[in-house]
Simulated scan of single mutants.
Amino acid sequence: MPVKRRVSKRRAIVFTPEVYAAFDAGDEYALRRALGLPPWHASPLDGDLDGRGYGEGLLRMETRQAALEIRNDITRAKVDHECR
């Protein structure tokens, strides 16, 4: 029986110069726009992403780990780019 293959709906994040500029400037709005993050998603610029996060909305709390991974990926990519 034939099976239809599903294409993943997960988008890969592309680090453009706008992402690096917004990250370096600490501009949360520009970074969200460059990464395509929805307003309820935790920002990679948040200071305590690996903490508990009391008083935040449920969706924001659930996206803290993803925001931390994005921040680590940006800093890792910047270091890799500077080493070349």
Rank of each mutant, 00 (worst) to 15 (best):
H81D: 13
E18K: 10
R32W: 01
E56I: 12
R32T: 05
L35D: 02
R11I: 00
R5T: 11
T16Y: 10
V19T: 04
D24A: 14
R71Y: 06
E69G: 12
R71F: 06
I13T: 07
L37V: 05
L35T: 04
D80E: 14
V19N: 03
A66R: 04
R6Q: 14
G55T: 07
A22S: 07
M61T: 09
A34Q: 00
N72S: 15
A66M: 07
A34M: 05
R6M: 13
D50Y: 12
P39R: 01
S8W: 08
R10M: 06
R84D: 09
V3P: 03
G57D: 06
E69M: 10
A30G: 13
G53H: 07
E28P: 01
L45S: 01
H41Q: 06
A21L: 15
G47V: 14
Y20N: 07
Q65G: 12
A67I: 01
A12T: 08
L68C: 04
P39S: 08
R60L: 01
A30D: 08
M61I: 07
A30Q: 09
A25Y: 05
V7E: 15
K78A: 08
D80Q: 12
A25T: 07
Y54D: 15
R6C: 10
R5L: 11
R60A: 05
W40K: 04
W40N: 04
L59R: 14
V19F: 04
F15T: 03
V14M: 11
A42Y: 04
A34Y: 00
R76L: 12
V19S: 01
D48S: 13
S8A: 12
S43F: 00
G51Q: 14
E28A: 08
Y20M: 11
E56L: 15
P38I: 00
L68I: 05
